[in-house]
Amino acid sequence: MITLSEIYKSFPGKKEMALSDISFSIGKGEAIALVGENGAGKTTLIRILSLILKPDKGFFSFDNIKFSDNPDYIKNKTGTLFSGDGSLYDRLTAEENIKYYAQLNGVGKNDYRKRIGPLIEDMSLSAFINDRVSTFSRGMKQRTAIARALITNPDFLILDEPSTGLDIISGNSVKRIINRLKQDGKTILFSSHNTDEIFTCADRITVIHKGKINCDKTVEAYRTAHGQDLTVYIKE
């Protein structure tokens, strides 16, 4: 479904490449855990896949469509949760945030009405859907942000550190959501530092270290080789 081919990316003023020769594929319905230390290049890769950044060299394709040929097609098929507080607008309500994103991505009124109800139920947002985001806890913001990413009914979901900063209950909730989305046939790429989340939710583990892929194995193969030690490929 998604193929990355020899992607390179550098930033002005930095000696080392942010990404170097990144090549891998993501099959339809697969869940890939992107693992690496801070500054490894995970967020840079996510930004490239979200079409916010352009690679210096290389390309990625979605359903055999190159990102440069039809970026809007890829944007419409992709939903992204960026790291942080879900990048929501504090003065808008949860629903207003979701609706704004839906409208910007061309979701029609009828489609929106059909999707919003089930999303509110799935993400347990009913109690605060009309409250302003400024009053939300981190967990509530993450669930709202995931709902926002799903409102366009994307085939491909990118989640950048979805459970970072969450308490145990909210973290478990995110894991359940990822597994449910997998069952629904969504293709997922998520970055995480949470071992339990990685081994519970992912089908494959891709380790990125200093901008390069050091390992790309199925979870079973990784577990067989290294147990649950995620530092094997990111040690100096």
Partner: peptide, 13 residues
């Protein structure tokens, strides 16, 4: 500053 620009730029607009 509020880190909402990434989400905005990822939209098809």
């Amino acid at each position: 500053e509020r880190a909402t620009i990434e989400t905005l730029l990822s939209c098809s607009i």
